[in-house]
Design a protein around this nucleic acid. Structure first.
Length: 230
DNA sequence: GCGACAG
DNA sequence: ATCTTGTCGC
């Protein structure tokens, strides 16, 4: 299945060109909550790992039923790594492989939970926002650490949170997904707002710190025991 | 010029 | 992200 991209652009670019693409695509991000949890049927976790000392990028997309969070199907793609890791330009390194993995699915998911930032990014286009705009599918960024923004430590109970701010602008949420454990950095990617990003992330989380979507995607992208594909 | 810096 | 074993704590 080839996926219809709403905004195609080159990936073999210079840092300067990447900045321009990010500024252009950031204008297309929509931050209203368009998802009704009652009508959501599935959620996809997206993550990337590396093989062969980093020369091969391995992307995994795990589609889970919502709200049961049972694994429905998954796809793995391997692509030669063609872009270095540069803070702020992560999507140019990982999305080519992710887009190829998406083509291995029988149908496109209704929501993406990506490893990394949504709009909590210097130019408001972290990997989740980038993937959301390209596919026009709702997305949320779920990061384990901060890229940018300031915040106050949220209280220690699961569900407690505090806003992630860039000056006076709200760019995300520091969310406790497990009592007494380091919080996650959540931010809207596309077609989702701050309230929805919090509610949906918690709805995808069980007894662990990371959402089930993320746990599956991470396992499929990095665990050598899943070294095959489909 | 000096730090910060998703994965 | 990745290289890597055991270990402390709930």
């Amino acid at each position: 299945m080839s996926i219809p991209l709403h905004h195609a652009h080159p990936w073999q670019v210079t840092a300067k060109e990447a900045f321009e693409i990010q500024h252009r695509l950031a204008l297309e991000v929509r931050l209203e909550d368009e998802i009704k949890p009652d009508q959501l049927h599935n959620v996809a976790g997206v993550d990337v790992g590396f093989e062969e000392a980093g020369s091969i990028t391995r992307a995994a997309v795990a589609v889970l039923a919502f709200p049961s969070l049972e694994l429905i199907e998954y796809s793995i793609a391997r692509v030669p790594t063609s872009f270095p890791y540069v803070p702020g330009l992560l999507s140019f390194r990982e999305l080519p492989a992710v887009l190829q993995a998406l083509e291995g699915l029988s149908r496109l998911p209704e929501l993406f939970l990506c490893d990394g930032q949504g709009i909590a990014h210097p130019r408001r286009l972290g990997i989740a926002a980038h993937l959301g705009v390209l596919t026009d599918i709702p997305s949320i960024g779920v990061a384990k650490t901060r890229l940018t923004g300031r915040y106050e430590e949220p209280d220690r109970e699961k569900g407690d949170w505090s806003p992630l701010l860039d000056g006076k602008e709200r760019i995300g949420t520091v969310l406790r997904t497990r009592t007494g454990i380091k919080p996650l950095y959540i931010s809207p990617g596309h077609r989702v707002g701050h309230p929805g990003s919090i509610e949906l992330t918690l709805a995808c989380t069980g007894r662990y710190k990371l959402p089930e979507t993320t746990r599956w995607a991470h396992r499929l992208a990095s665990d050598k025991r899943y070294r095959q594909s489909q």
